[in-house]
Structures are given as C-alpha cells and as structure tokens.
C-alpha cells in the first residue's frame, strides 16, 4: 500500500459518499445515469467474488464489501425510492456495445483461463468504460448540478491516482499488472474532457455547462 493508492481509494470512497449525499439532499437522482450505476454493480460483483476464497486484508475486505453494498443501494434508490426523478429517456447509451467487447477482451486477455480470472478481467475492462453512459448523458443535457460534477471529479481522481500507484509499484516493488494498467489508462483518459470543464468552470464558481 502506497500513498497514491490510499488516496485513490479514499477518493473512490468519497465519490460514493458524494453520490449518496447528492441523492439524499436533493431527494432526486436527476442527472445520474442508471446504466452507469448498474454497470458499476456488475463490475464490483464480478471482481470481488474473491471475497469468498481469497483473503487479502481487513482493509481489502471492508472496502470490497462497501463498494458492492453501496452500489446496490444506489440502484435501489434510483429504481425504487426516487424512481419518479429518474428519466430513462435521456439515458440512451447502448450498453451492449460495451458488454460485448469486454466479454471478448476478457476471454483473450486474462491471467489464467479460469471462470474467476476471466470474470476479474471482464470487470477491469468493464470498469474502464462504465462511466460512458454517464458522460454521454452529461453531453446530451449539456449541464449538471455542481454536486454531481464533484462526484464525477472524485471518481476521476481515483482513477488518475492509480496511475502513479502503478508507476510506484513498478519501480519500488518491481511489480506490474498489464491488464489493469492498460484499462486504467483508457479509463482515466475518458475523464480528460470532463476535467477540463470541471477545472475551468465548476472550480471557478460557474455552472457546469457545455458549449452548445
């Protein structure tokens, strides 16, 4: 565990707390993509199956359990409690275009050709693109509440911080995880546009609005 990773994980934790805070205070899931949230549940469930057969540390188990339960809770809030505030008509990204290639990639690139390892690999590839329905929705509506953009910024920061973590591990621990690194770089790159608007507008006190 190095500081980049610790801060990355804390940023990931913060992003989920921001997401829950946004939903509870505005009593609305407006501006959130159900598809992205459902993809995150898929990511966490397929990746953290190792909770049942591979104990790493208390920290590791607690975080994995938190990510699975909180993401399922968000789905419940979107589909049940605040259902009337969810607008599927603007959440139109075709998820099958993400799932298909991820299945294919995980069958080709994995560390062992076993069910659990293929699922792990699938979850890594899927996580790298899971934010796309959300970013697509943002692009369509052209604006977002500040709190929603803070959520996305924390999520993006988590991914960005994993990159120096891998560099650190490469040099200091002589360890490398090519699948996670490749997917992680792709995932971080997807946030570049968002971060540009976030830094130039939201952090300057302006509304998050995309040019028409």
């Amino acid at each position: 565990m190095n500081l980049f990773r610790l801060f990355g994980d804390m940023s990931h934790l913060a992003s989920i707390l921001l997401l829950l805070y946004k939903i509870q205070t505005t009593r609305s899931v407006r501006g959130l993509s159900f598809k992205t949230q459902a993809l995150y549940v898929t990511v966490f469930v397929t990746r953290y199956l190792d909770l049942f057969y591979d104990y790493v540390s208390l920290y590791n188990s607690v975080m994995k359990t938190f990510f699975i339960t909180s993401s399922c809770y968000v789905l419940y809030l979107m589909k049940k409690k605040y259902r009337p505030t969810n607008d599927p008509s603007i959440d139109t990204f075709r998820v099958e275009y993400l799932l298909g290639p991820c299945v294919l990639l995980s069958l080709i690139f994995n560390y062992r050709f076993t069910f659990a390892e293929i699922l792990w690999s699938f979850s890594i590839f899927l996580e790298s693109v899971a934010i796309l329905p959300q970013l697509f929705m943002l692009q369509r509506t052209g604006e977002a509440e500040a709190i929603t953009t803070h959520y996305l910024a924390a999520l993006g920061a988590y991914r960005a911080l994993y990159i120096p973590n891998w560099i650190y591990r490469y040099w200091m621990e002589d360890q490398v995880d090519p699948i996670a690194v490749t997917a992680g770089i792709v995932q971080t790159a997807l946030y570049v546009d968002f971060f540009y608007v976030y830094f130039t507008k939201v952090l300057q006190g302006q509304r998050f609005e995309l040019p028409a």
Partner: peptide
C-alpha cells in the same frame, strides 16, 4: 517485473 497480486488492488 513480477506479476502484481491483482486481487490486492481494488
């Protein structure tokens, strides 16, 4: 380099 323990990272 060695393969990282990929079940350790979140």
């Amino acid at each position: 380099p060695l393969a990282a323990d990929h079940h350790d990272e979140l």
